[in-house]
């Protein structure tokens, strides 16, 4: 599959180079009146359909923020559902304008596949979940355990590396989907379930007694997830990057969905004023309306609010901010200034 993807993308690269001779993505998006956003086909908390049939979640929120920044209307998004196998071709071929889809920022995706990651909206990492009955407190005590693992993913490689480097052995129980993992884990066919920590938390929340299971403190891989666009259109990349940065900065500066209207009228803080368009015209520098930050935050809230709404401690998923806290609060979330 990998070689196939590469071959497809090689052909795609040619098409994209030719395509870039035309107008930029931002102009195209403005002309058609909506952002075409590639999302996943369903990851708890990150992308799901609500009872009314609308896409919601941590990832679609980024798409909605971008749409709000451009059009002042968070509903000017059309979603294309992509799977792990079709996501990159969908982006490279221009079927979607951006991907916001639990995609790990890696060297080869950035360079070889020719995409531009415009930031990180969730710092994830592979972890382990075990039952409390097992009485282990560290992943280092898991020698000889049976592990439920999704086959053919990087998690499989990470797991093998981790166990080998710690001189331990394990027995793999191959599974395909999250639901299958949950069933197997509940039935006791595997002692451990390993996948990204966010996925573990989501799975744990659906177990009959979530408190009987713990997620080990060890995180064995770096999975920075973020939105991405095609190489070669820097203006569009900037748009997506700075909308995301606006959400993060808003949290840092205390701008929320509730008070953004009030703050947009002008505050004592010049950075807030610049971001919300009360002072200067930052938006024009990248082809956006002056109040793009105002509109984006008004539509979806700041980063902290989005986090809290879909995956935070008060939701059943119950993810702690951890690495994803602001740099001022012990995390590594850090947005360059609006200046």
């Amino acid at each position: 599959m990998k070689t196939f993807t590469k071959a497809a993308l090689a052909v795609a690269a040619f098409g994209v180079v030719a395509g870039n001779a035309q107008a930029g993505t931002l102009q195209d998006v403005m002309a058609k009146g909506h952002v075409q956003c590639g999302i996943s086909t369903g990851v708890p908390g990150f992308a799901f359909t609500d009872d009314a049939g609308n896409w919601q979640g941590f990832d679609p929120a980024v798409c909605q923020a971008v749409a709000a920044a451009i059009f002042g209307d968070a509903s000017a998004v059309k979603y294309t559902t992509t799977t792990g196998k079709t996501r990159f071709t969908a982006l490279a071929s221009g079927e979607v304008d951006m991907l916001a889809r639990n995609t790990t920022w890696t060297f080869s995706r950035d360079t070889d596949l020719q995409f531009e990651f415009t930031g990180v909206n969730y710092y994830d990492g592979q972890g382990f979940m075990v039952s409390k009955d097992l009485g282990v407190s560290s992943a280092k005590d898991l020698d000889g355990a049976s592990v439920c693992i999704q086959t053919g993913t990087t998690t499989e490689l990470n797991l093998a590396d981790f166990f080998r480097s710690n001189g331990m052995s394990y027995e793999a129980v191959p599974i395909e989907t999250n639901d299958e993992a949950r069933t197997n884990y509940t039935a006791g066919r595997c002692d451990i379930y390993t996948t990204d920590a966010s996925g573990l938390a989501a799975t744990r929340s659906t177990l009959d007694d979530p408190s009987a299971h713990v997620i080990m403190p060890e995180i064995i891989s770096k999975e920075p997830l973020g939105p991405l666009v095609r190489h070669g259109d820097h203006q569009w990349g900037d748009v997506v990057r700075w909308v995301l940065n606006a959400l993060i900065t808003a949290e840092e500066l205390g701008v929320t969905q509730a008070n953004v209207d009030e703050m947009a009228a002008g505050t004592n803080n010049p950075e807030i004023n610049r971001m919300l368009g009360a002072e200067g015209d930052l938006g024009a520098m990248t082809g956006l309306p002056k109040d793009f930050g105002h509109q984006a935050i008004k539509a979806v809230g700041n980063y902290g609010e989005i986090f809290e709404r879909f995956i935070g401690p008060s939701t059943p998923i119950g993810l702690e901010r951890g690495l994803n806290a602001l740099w001022t609060q012990g995390g590594i979330l850090y947005s360059p200034p609006f200046r």
């Binding site: 086909t41 369903g42 990851v43 708890p44 908390g45 990150f46 992308a47 799901f48 359909t49 609500d50 009872d51 896409w55 919601q56 979640g57 294309t80 559902t81 992509t82 799977t83 196998k85 079709t86 969908a90 989907t177 639901d179 949950r182 069933t183 989501a202 929340s205 659906t206 177990l207 939701t315 059943p316 998923i317």
Partner: peptide, 26 residues
């Protein structure tokens, strides 16, 4: 077709199951 990202009933099921309100009812 669910593998290429079209949401047939199984795909809709998956997207719906990701709603944490209903998750776990596979």
């Amino acid at each position: 077709v669910v593998i290429i990202g079209l949401l047939d009933p199984l795909g809709i099921g998956r997207a719906s199951l990701s709603d944490i309100k209903w998750a776990g009812l596979a």
